[in-house]
Design a protein around this nucleic acid. Structure first.
Lengths: 217, 217
DNA sequence: CAGCTATGTATCTGTATTGTATCATAAAAT
DNA sequence: ATTTTATGATACAATACAGATACATAGCTG
């Protein structure tokens, strides 16, 4: 299990991140200031730290100094997009930075990227007889690869992370397409159909009348 | 009892939400401006706040600031659907976002989602020997799934949340169909009959002469 | 630039869902 | 008991929805 430490004094942001990373299968711990961060790092192993720069107590840079010798990758969270801060952070040893406000998709991408770089990626999600590798973005049944497009892959991932849960068309659209306006387009349906066909999941991904779809396993 | 505070200056919207959440078993309180919201939050505990952005007095963002330290989840209600606003809201600490006009079904889904996230709700409702899973929108008896349509499911949910309570036809119609005008149509009756048949609940859902129906368990 | 792939729109069609109409039966009122 | 009214049952029609297919566009690759 990959463990991520989230250090941010704004609880909502903390929660938002935690929720999404937990959903993606990571084990998260939240602390709200620099001192607590150092304390917990003293006794617990983590694979990645998400670190806010503006912190009460010790600021982000100081915490970074503390983390450095532990050799744990760090992603800086910064409110401002000032190049100065970025450079400073990266110079001091942050592996990446993320400017608030950020899209969840981007957060996940960067987290995966960093973990991959550190060789710690959790890569496989298994659903039924299918293996989804988030790292190579590939899907296999046994050792036969199933070629999916970008959207199809994202869609599958969402279903895989929400097995047996009815997903509204709007939810699907928001997550895969990133926009909250769908209108009456039938894009989602079409992609579900294509995905079904490719995976031979004609009856596993069920349409729910007037609602959306559900992956049944 | 889960308590929800509704903050919206448009009374009809307020009422609509209140009615539906009350039916769903939540305890609701309505206020119509930001100041009142803060006042009541000062003295009463709530589990969730539904907050309109456009408010007289203090606007939604300011109220949000006020709520933040209280650590109560917030769902923003807004007419706008721009990602900018969404991010702004989420960044400031809103836990979710609902764009007006919204479907009642979606409202309930999001409320449940948030409460679940906060560990304050259960996803399964058990009635007699039947299990209703609001998350997957499925109904089972033992491990035999009972296929219900949208309306049937909503109807069952309403009965399940109001066991042994007589429900007026108008109430049923308003909640499941979302409209407050029913005329003298017999739509509700028909759906009750269909639901009865599917669940073999011919005698559990009792007709109450000149009133409506009641689920007896 | 041509050709390919990914993605999205438009359209048609079958069908599940939903609602209306009708008649039969049960409950209440007189 | 008889009338009146409400509900149950059934059949059927309208509708909305999802599946399928074809086609248009965009974006990439060579």
């Amino acid at each position: 299990m990959i463990k991520i430490l989230i250090v941010d004094d704004e609880k909502p942001i903390n929660d938002l991140i935690e929720m999404n990373l937990s959903e993606a299968g990571y084990n998260c711990t939240c602390v709200y200031d620099g001192i607590s961060a150092c304390d917990i790092l003293e006794v617990e192993r983590f694979d990645l730290v998400l670190l806010d720069i503006m912190l009460p107590g010790a600021n982000g840079y100081e915490v970074l100094d503390y983390i450095k010798p532990l050799n744990i990758p760090v992603i800086f969270l910064t409110a401002k997009g000032s190049t100065e801060d970025k450079v400073k952070g990266l110079k001091l040893g942050a592996d990446d930075y993320l400017t608030k406000p950020f899209e969840i998709v981007e957060l996940l991408a960067r987290v995966e990227s960093i973990l991959r770089r550190a060789g710690k990626t959790q890569t496989e999600i298994i659903v039924d007889d299918i293996i989804i590798d988030t790292r190579s973005r590939s899907v296999r049944r046994g050792n036969r690869e199933i070629a999916l497009t970008m959207k199809e892959f994202e869609l599958l991932l969402l279903f895989a992370r929400n097995k047996n849960i009815a997903l509204f068309r709007e939810t699907l659209y928001e997550n895969v397409w990133g926009s909250d306006f769908m209108g009456d387009s039938r894009t989602v349906d079409l992609h579900v159909q294509r995905l079904r066909k490719k995976l031979h999941w004609e009856d596993k991904i069920k349409a729910i009348y007037k609602v959306g779809y559900r992956l049944e396993v």
